[in-house]
């Protein structure tokens, strides 16, 4: 599904990703762990198409298509979703309008007519129920005045609405209390299907108790220095990142 080969990325002349290789297959959950400043968010943003980064070398192929030549919005319509580490506040744009626009734009990309309004509203309700989100989201501006937990839940809500094939969760767990963490994790688990995949970026092993990964990668200084099963996350938790640092 996703194939990253020898990806080298820099910003302002500074190399951040130094040759990433990653293969994600349908149905899999991959975890990416690593200390702060190591390039996790950069990797996520480059897959999603953030253009402030310079791709120096390498390729990202998604379902047979070269992602690096695609504008951000087309990548989304092709099935990439990024849950932001720091979701952006957009005053004046209601969540309903935002999601309806996004859903219909993606439908347009696939040659489909806009979703009828009642169907769309029903879908919003269904997803909220499924995710156990009770807040009256509809008329609030996107992320404006939301608490940290609300912002992250809102990301998962968007994920549920847009039904991507590859969801990248960038530290969706950080700053969450245990209840919010469970909402997020349960949501993801309910959305798991044999034909989609998740890339879960996290700093802590805690989230992985709820979202059990198939493969864990350790990113250190712009390189994946270790990959393994879910035990790797436990080991990392026990020994700390110092262990990786000494190995690297």
């Amino acid at each position: 599904m996703l194939s990253i080969k020898n990806l080298r990325v820099s910003i302002e002349g500074k190399e951040i990703l130094k040759g990433i290789n990653l293969e994600v297959r349908p149905g899999e959950v991959h975890a990416i762990m690593g200390p702060n400043g190591t390039g996790k968010s950069t990797l996520a943003a480059v897959i999603a198409g953030r253009d402030i980064f310079e791709v120096e070398e390498g390729e990202i192929v998604f379902n047979g298509k070269n992602l690096l030549e695609m504008p951000v919005e087309d990548r989304a319509s092709e099935g990439i979703f990024l849950s932001f580490q720091y979701p952006v506040e957009i005053p004046g744009v209601s969540i309903t309008n935002f999601m309806r626009t996004a859903v219909n734009e993606q439908r347009k990309y696939h040659g489909l007519d806009p979703m009828p309004a009642n169907e769309f509203l029903a879908k919003m309700e269904e997803k909220k129920r499924m995710l156990d989100i009770h807040a009256k989201l509809a008329n609030r501006s996107v992320n404006e005045g939301f608490s940290g937990g609300e912002k992250k839940k809102n990301e998962i809500f968007q994920l549920a609405m847009l039904e991507p094939t590859l969801a990248i969760l960038d530290e969706t767990d950080s700053g969450l209390d245990i209840d919010a963490l469970k909402v997020v994790a349960n949501g993801v688990n309910k959305l798991r299907r044999p034909d989609n995949a998740f890339l879960v970026i996290t700093h802590y092993q805690r989230l992985l108790e709820y979202i059990v990964p198939d493969i864990v990668h350790v990113l250190f200084d712009g390189r994946i220095v270790r990959s393994g099963g879910k035990e790797l996350a436990m080991e990392l938790e026990e020994k700390g990142y110092e262990w990786i640092r000494s190995e690297a």
Partner: peptide, 24 residues
């Protein structure tokens, strides 16, 4: 940042721009 956020949901650049102007 807001432009990237909107576009990352599939909203094309022109419409994202318009949405932000409208919101303003």
């Amino acid at each position: 940042e807001a432009m990237f956020y909107l576009r990352s949901r599939g909203i094309n650049a022109d419409n994202a721009r318009m949405l932000l102007m409208y919101a303003f």
